[in-house]
Design a protein around this nucleic acid. Structure first.
Lengths: 192, 192
DNA sequence: GTCTATAACGAGATAGAC
DNA sequence: GTCTATCTCGTTATAGAC
């Protein structure tokens, strides 16, 4: 078991804090105290809070992209891939976290420009991936989409982000899971 | 034209700031400078920021409740009522605002307890209103819901909140309107 | 790489005059 | 009701020793 380097541990703690409290809702002091190190030590690894924020999104988006590629490469049909996509969100919601980019979208006007750009790119990438899965599913005959796949993709991304938001404020992850299941079922013409 | 009293003008400015920047993203200094008054004058009207926050949600929820009652009393069919419901959100999204309670839901863990309670109540009330409209529409035969109306109501609330979040970060209100239209259509078995 | 010390600023809030 | 003056604390960030 190699010990985790400081930079990574900073990212881990900051990521959880942003996902629960928001980028404007945590401070270097929070991260430092949790790691048992001094505040200025953080600045050695991330000169400014904006730098830390950029690194957080970059890592999160990268991790998400890897997961999406992994799902896409499975031999599963489209509906199973969509279920796996929803499972990514379900995992995030455990221990009261919001999607990092959903949280940052709420704070959007207050973010430094590079972070804003990365947030919109995250959503665009997710929608593009979903659109592809939906198109494939339609061609294979497994999905019955009532409309354009790009619109369905946007509804899924927005629907999952919003369902997380509401479910978390109710402290009820099950609320998210049933909503997500029904959203997908209704959107893709599933049995139930 | 009676001049607006200070308390109301404070609420108006603070409301817009919370809807755009979040409760943790604005300060008494922001409100004071925008109104051209001194910071401590705000404390006369709202002793603490938590008090101001409570008053903001109360007024917002009250205004929303009045609008919902007004829509419910119309002779329109369920589908028109749902369209009117979506229009409430569309109006909010104009000039880059988020739904007040959607924004506060993102900041939920950082809010004072009374604000947290008011946020969840807001969502519960909206879902209850929607459930009623959906049930009425189904009895009248106008709506074909694929599942329980309470689940559909939750999908609508979450879907609209999330669609606002994503659309606003893209600076594209049209993205919200098409997503909302499709969401309702797919959920209620509409022509297109 | 991590520390102590400190700067520079903004936050929410209070005291007391007018 | 609104002001000036001030307090206290938390924030991001820097300087410089180890």
């Amino acid at each position: 078991m190699t010990p985790t380097d400081t930079r990574t541990r900073i990212l881990d703690v900051a990521e959880r804090l942003v996902q629960t409290r928001g980028f404007n809702g945590f401070s270097y002091a929070d991260v430092a105290s949790e790691l048992g190190i001094a505040k200025p030590s953080l600045h050695y690894h991330f000169a400014t809070k904006a730098d830390l924020g950029e690194a957080l999104i970059r890592r999160y988006a990268e991790r998400f992209a890897v997961a999406l590629t992994s799902i896409a490469e499975r031999p599963d049909d489209a509906r199973r891939k969509l279920d796996a996509y929803v499972a990514l969100y379900t995992d995030v919601l455990r221990d009261q976290r919001m999607c990092l980019c959903g949280m940052l979208a709420a704070e959007y006007p207050t973010l430094p420009a590079p972070m804003r750009a990365a947030v919109t790119t995250f959503f665009d990438d997710n929608e593009a991936w979903l659109e592809r899965v939906l198109d494939d599913g339609r061609e294979q005959g497994g999905l019955r989409l009532p409309g354009p796949s790009d619109e369905a993709a946007r509804i899924i991304v927005g629907g999952l982000e919003g369902a997380m938001l509401v479910a978390r404020s109710h402290g009820d992850p099950a609320r998210f899971e049933t909503a997500a299941g029904r959203l997908l079922a209704d959107l893709t013409g599933a049995p139930a």
